[in-house]
Design a protein around this nucleic acid. Sequence first.
DNA 1: ATTTGTAGTGAACAAATGAGCACGTAATGA
DNA 2: TCATTACGTGCTCATTTGTTCACTACAAAT
Lengths: 211, 211
Amino acid sequence: MKKQLTDRQDDILRFIHHFRNENGYPPTLREIGKKFEIASTFGVKRHLDALEKKGYLNVESNASRGISLQPFENDAIIDTTNNFTKIPIIGHVAAGIPITAIENIDGSLVIDSSFMKHSESCFALRVKGDSMINAGIFEGDLVVVLPKKDAANGETIVAMLEDEVTVKTFEIKNKKVRLLPANEKYQPIDVTGRKEFSVVGKVVGVVRWLN
Amino acid sequence: MKKQLTDRQDDILRFIHHFRNENGYPPTLREIGKKFEIASTFGVKRHLDALEKKGYLNVESNASRGISLQPFENDAIIDTTNNFTKIPIIGHVAAGIPITAIENIDGSLVIDSSFMKHSESCFALRVKGDSMINAGIFEGDLVVVLPKKDAANGETIVAMLEDEVTVKTFEIKNKKVRLLPANEKYQPIDVTGRKEFSVVGKVVGVVRWLN
DNA sequence: ATTTGTAGTGAACAAATGAGCACGTAATGA
DNA sequence: TCATTACGTGCTCATTTGTTCACTACAAAT
């Protein structure tokens, strides 16, 4: 676990990330200073020293713009130069706790930005069980989820049901709501009006890795 | 289409990409010169001017290390800072033409480097047909392929068969080689000793995107 | 025959840049 | 109370770095 940053240090670290993503190269001490109205390069330098000490970046001595950043752990990152988006993988999901709460995050997944038409708020979940194999979703796959509170008929969704999350096909017919597995071994689940049921989001992607 | 580079310019462009990925910041003129044994910074500068003119990078005047790179179109990129790998998506595959020939490339796919234990030589193919739906590989999915010339029993592979590429399960039993579809609608294909058959590689990943 | 583009040397220069010192303020916790 | 940490100024200095000039050389295209 990395050490806690002060507000000021956090601001500066974010600025450096942003600057590098925008320009392709890191800022100088004076460019940082200008942004934060720190007149002396020495003041900036000590912020960098602190950030380096706490493990967020490395500074190459005597090299101009010699800042190399350590990767973020939890944040969504969108890189327009290389066209990727980094989304969090949610480890355990529990009712009541916001799904993207930092404690839940189990890693990150980098995917192509061209997939992410749906802004940047997606997250990923690792699938347990085999109830969706006929939809090509296997145990261990990562499903990419676009958060939504409702769903349309036939959509593949992630639902919260009695403190558990499941992936199912959403069916609404004659005002009855059912969750359909895609595996003959399982039965549809009628959730019409059940309080312990809610829609978490819609499955927009599947990523599987073998071995 | 970007303009053609000379060998020298291409070498230098690749070095800058590599340097930036390794260090997090671009090289100086003298660092480039040292690598290529160009004694004068002016010699290096004119290479950068040429690369800028041809649209491969931008140079910020009077800014040290002020090189910002245009994204590659076709090459594999590995970024250690943000932990991603960019692999080419192969459009059409034809016998005789090297599979990663530039003409074949149809885009690129960014994926998480943690998936890429298999060095960096992978590429992706878009799946046509439904012969592997029981293996969770659907039409339109992208399969990530690790190039190999042989396969083990039971592996999901990409094979070249009579000028067509297909995804199948590889079976070798009693010295007979068959390609097994994962769909009841199709029959196994016996390819024992057939000349028009070759293994392209092993499927190591599947990426599906909905909508 | 001349232009254009590529590729390089060597030197000189100004600007950009990081390092360092002495000094000051404020908040926090032991 | 004292030590520590965070945060800042103003300044100097040495180094790094990009810019520019004059000159050479070769190949391809016009």
